[in-house]
Amino acid sequence: MNSVTSHVESLLKKLLVALSALIVVMVTWQVISRYVLQAPSSVTEEAARFLLIWISLFGAAYAYQTGSHLGLDILVNKLSTKGQAVAGIFSHLCVVGFALNVMVFGGFSLVDLTMTPIQTSAALEIKMGYVYFAVPLSGLIIVLFGINKIKQLASQIWGQ
């Protein structure tokens, strides 16, 4: 389980670095194409927007793994160590529940709707399903990370 998680995490890191580099190149190219080449590119803007969707969703999964999403811990901090672990399990269960129902189930049905019939984007004319596929996929990754976190907290409470 742990090795799967760390494998996914390191893949995710590489993906995010690549996507971020790509988006910078893309928009810089947009400026160059308009001013230097005098031929405005008609697809870079849409491509960059789709990259942003991917960065946002996969980045959200990564930020969940690193515990970087903002939260309010003033109440939970007043609990005992065990109480904090129980509250932590509850919080991760909520995240996993959301990821499963909304991101994985809702996301897959969204992808399904855009694939039958095929919905294409306006400028690039690519399948919107590819863009939206980031929703269920990042949802699955969040579920994986969440279950791992819950297992760790559980073993902390009930011993190894």
Binding site: Q38, P40, S42, A122, A123, E125
Partner: peptide
Amino acid sequence: TGKKIRVMESQTAV
């Protein structure tokens, strides 16, 4: 000729 015209995001318009 050579004028930059804003169009909707659509290959047809381009």
